Structure formats: C-alpha cells, structure tokens
Deep mutational scan, measured.
Amino acid sequence: IRKQWHEDITQDLRNHLVHKLVQAIFPTPDPAALKDRRMENLVAYARKVEGDMYESANNRAEYYHLLAEKIYKIQKELEEKRRT
C-alpha cells in the first residue's frame, strides 16, 4: 500500500537507513566489507527490517522512530551478549 508520506522518502534515504541498521549490527569502518558475501545476508535482513517499518509506519516521524527503536534494541542486545 502506497502511503502519501512515501512520496517524500527517496531511495537514497532508504538505502542510507538500511546502511545505518547494518552498522548497528556489524560496525565496520571498511566499506569494502559490505561487498563481502557474508554481509549479503546481513544487508538483506536490514532491508527487510527497513521495508517492514516503511510499510507499517503511518508517517515519516513514525518511520524514523521505529528504525531508531530497532537500532537501539539491536545495540542493547549486542552489548548484553558482549558482557556474558
């Protein structure tokens, strides 16, 4: 379902936000690492998460909020795993 606010969101912005999700899960300073085949699954997962939020959000603010919440949860989980 195409929503009115979707018209304001460019593909570049969506790609940028997918990249932010990927960085939250696997922070790497090396952009070449993103071309690694093992990263493809991670990028696919991040695209799916972003797509789900894009579809479920009712406006741009909610879209950003859902993504920020997801990134926060991912970082929290990773922190907890590092501690144990």
Rank of each mutant, 00 (worst) to 15 (best):
L13M: 14
N59W: 00
H19Q: 11
I1S: 08
V49T: 03
A44R: 10
D8K: 02
P27N: 09
Y63I: 00
W5A: 07
A44C: 02
E80A: 04
D52S: 15
Y63A: 04
L17R: 01
R60V: 10
L78P: 14
L78F: 10
V22H: 00
Y45I: 06
N41W: 05
L42S: 06
W5E: 11
D52A: 05
M53N: 06
I9C: 02
K70L: 03
Q11W: 06
L42E: 06
K70M: 06
K73D: 14
E62H: 07
K76N: 09
K70V: 02
A44S: 10
T10L: 01
A61T: 13
K48Y: 01
E40H: 10
Y45L: 06
T28L: 09
P29R: 11
F26W: 13
M53Y: 09
A61Y: 05
D8T: 10
D30Q: 08
F26D: 15
L67W: 02
A46E: 06
T28Y: 07
T84H: 15
L67R: 02
V43L: 12
K48I: 00
R83L: 13
E40F: 04
D36H: 09
I71W: 00
P27E: 14
H16M: 08
A32K: 14
F26A: 15
D52Q: 11
E62D: 01
I74Y: 15
E55C: 06
R38W: 05
Q11D: 14
K20F: 01
N15D: 15
L42K: 03
L17V: 14
H19A: 11
D36R: 05
Q4D: 15
M39G: 08
L17Y: 15
V49K: 02
R60M: 09
A24P: 02
S56L: 09
A61N: 14
P31W: 08
D52C: 11
T10G: 06
R14K: 00
R38P: 08
A33W: 05
R83K: 13
A46W: 03
N59P: 00
Q4S: 13
Y64L: 15
Y72Q: 14
E55F: 08
L21I: 15
N15A: 07
R83E: 11
N59C: 05
G51T: 13
E40N: 10
V18H: 00
I25G: 06
K3A: 01
K70Q: 05
R60K: 14
E69Y: 03
E7R: 07
H16W: 01
D8I: 00
T28V: 10
E80W: 03
K76Q: 11
Q4W: 02
Q23I: 00
D52P: 02
R47F: 02
L34N: 12
D52K: 05
L34P: 13
D30A: 12
M53T: 09
N58W: 01
S56I: 06
M53C: 13
V18N: 02
P27V: 04
D36Q: 10
A33C: 09
F26I: 13
I71H: 02
R14Y: 06
V49Y: 00
R14W: 04
R47G: 03
L42D: 01
Y64G: 05
A33D: 10
K76R: 09
T10Y: 03
E40M: 09
K81R: 11
Y64E: 15
E50R: 04
V49M: 13
D8V: 02
E40L: 05
K20C: 04
P29S: 15
L67Q: 04
D30L: 05
D12A: 08
M53Q: 02
L42H: 05
K81T: 07
L42R: 04
Q23A: 11
E55R: 05
A24F: 03
P27D: 10
N15S: 04
F26Q: 14
D12W: 03
V22E: 00
R2K: 13
R38N: 10
E62F: 00
Y72R: 15
N58S: 13
L17K: 02
A61K: 11
A46K: 05
E69L: 04
S56Y: 14
R37D: 09
P29G: 12
V18Y: 00
K48Q: 05
G51L: 12
N15Q: 08
K48W: 01
M53G: 01
A44E: 09
R37W: 09
Y54C: 04
N15L: 02
R2Y: 03
V18A: 02
I9P: 01
M39L: 13
Y63N: 00
K3D: 03
L13A: 12
H65W: 04
V49D: 06
G51D: 10
